[in-house]
Design a protein around this nucleic acid. Structure first.
Lengths: 288, 288
DNA sequence: TTCATCTATGTAAATTATTTTCTTATCGAT
DNA sequence: ATCGATAAGAAAATAATTTACATAGATGAA
């Protein structure tokens, strides 16, 4: 179930002039688009109804009414996020925008994520005797730690590093039993690409979560692609973080399922440790 | 404009027998209801099309198609994913589950978030001369760093700590110009509650992102409530992380907007630094 | 009980919306 | 200039939806 608004944005430039007019109206007034009849929408875009039908088909919908439903479904509270420059002032608008962007980002990832790659990476994680999560810069380094945070709970050996030099040095010490997971939102992290190549050269498995075709992605065996349009508004927090979170989530969840038996014991121990230490309420779930 | 599904639930018992049948079908198969024509829906409920039209009117919609749109809009996407036990095996199921939960979690937060609290916290962040982000345990400590990561980019003075002892000691040194932001998913972090009280005692402002009414929430002046049902399945990664991410996002975004002029310069500098260092492509946005 | 009345619902007609088919116009390449 | 491809409208055909009307069944008062 793809996010039609995201699709619309992606395809917009490939549409004909009349169709672009329709697209623009849908963008700028979804409330109208969703409630109007095909005739009303056609009139407002100054095109004929058949053009609207063709427009819907081109976007992968079977009929106009399917199109309307898809537009309505695409959590359009915050779809304004897709437009580069949105004027946002009130706190409620900020909330709606943040939420809309997060939702849409996740939709885009959901639509594009490659289940096979997730599977392959998870398999490799299970095989590795030690895992090294690399990421640099405030965002990606955070995710390197997230990888560590998620995998150690499953009883896996894992460490995270955000230090380029350490990454390079570490890479040189690896072998066939090791695995490197590299995280880079931009995909332009040269040092990381280098570290991945070195690790690969010594026989370690390499996986990345990054932009497809990017420097970093090309340097590793497996890349879980996270390609998202990032606006140019410097004030806009990168919504890609939600997608990265989800990408890590998928891998960790799949790994957890695959090694269910051996994963439960470490989790149980962590939990007991937390509960005993903090308070006696057993309902707490590995909370913080 | 109320959530049509909620309305439906509330009104169901007041409907006639035929209408109840329609209601039940809509409930149990929204996907179908949203895509079917009035004839198909009528056939499935074993009623005539006019009955469906009357049903829609009774629910406050002007037409059947308005009804469909309202159903499509009602955030029903993933509520099933919030239910504790869903059996998942294939990688595609893992992906769908991770995505569904993330979406549902964000929806729940969106519905419940208190815009005034977000506003108040943002205001305080702007006033503070120094900000301390506290969080412990793999998850919350990550978010403490996320707070740092987001705010330093806006030219604010901020540091993060995941160390209980450091938090306690730091708290004792604070004064009126300082602000502590405490993060705790479970809300049961006693040491953090203590640190917040100490900081408060010395006149520092305190805000938390945590479960409402929790130990941690009660220890601070302002709490941005993140209340989510967490299943008991230990293998399930806590989806609360998406909500925390979003909560931080909201605060940071609002702060960014409020101090737009002074925030742009540090961001510009960070960007230039990254671009110059990495490569000449100016389109890169504070990526990693 | 019986009749009046009201509600729920269906049928068929009327209306409206949507799609298909066919045609014309436009644009770019040869 | 001509061909072919694409775009887009007009009109016809089809399908969906609503309206108007009719009827059955229930309810309740005389």
């Amino acid at each position: 179930m793809a996010d039609i608004i995201a699709t619309l944005q992606k395809e917009r430039d490939g549409l004909s002039r009349s169709e672009q007019r329709i697209a623009d109206i849908v963008f700028e007034d979804k409330q109208f688009a969703v409630n109007a009849s095909i005739i009303e929408l056609a009139a407002r875009a100054d095109v004929s109804p058949p053009t609207v039908t063709r427009f819907c088909r081109r976007l992968g919908c079977h009929s106009f009414s399917e199109f309307k439903v898809r537009v309505a479904q695409s959590a359009f509270i915050g779809t304004r996020y897709l437009e580069p420059e949105v004027k946002v002032t009130s706190s409620q608008e900020v909330i709606d925008t943040v939420m809309g962007r997060a939702q849409s980002t996740l939709n885009v990832l959901h639509e594009n994520v490659d289940a096979e790659v997730v599977e392959k990476i998870a398999e490799q994680v299970l095989k590795a005797k030690m895992i090294y999560a690399f990421g640099s810069g405030g965002n990606s380094s955070l995710f390197a730690h997230e990888v560590q945070n998620r995998l150690f709970r499953l009883g896996l050996r894992v460490t995270a590093s955000e230090d380029h030099s350490m990454q390079l040095m570490t890479a040189s010490t690896l072998g066939e039993d090791d695995m490197v997971i590299g995280l880079s939102i931009s995909g332009r992290n040269r040092e990381m690409a280098r570290a991945l190549e070195i690790a690969s050269g010594y026989g370690a498995a390499t996986a990345t979560i990054s932009k497809s075709e990017s420097l970093v992605a090309q340097a590793s065996e497996m890349n879980l692609a996270v390609d998202l349009p990032e606006g140019t508004d410097v004030l806009r927090p990168s919504s890609a973080r939600y997608a990265f979170m989800a990408a890590i989530d998928m891998i960790a969840f799949l790994v957890a399922i695959k090694r269910k038996d051996s994963a439960i014991e470490p989790l149980r121990r962590i939990k007991r440790q937390l509960v005993t230490f903090r308070d006696e309420d057993d309902t707490q779930v590995l909370g913080d």
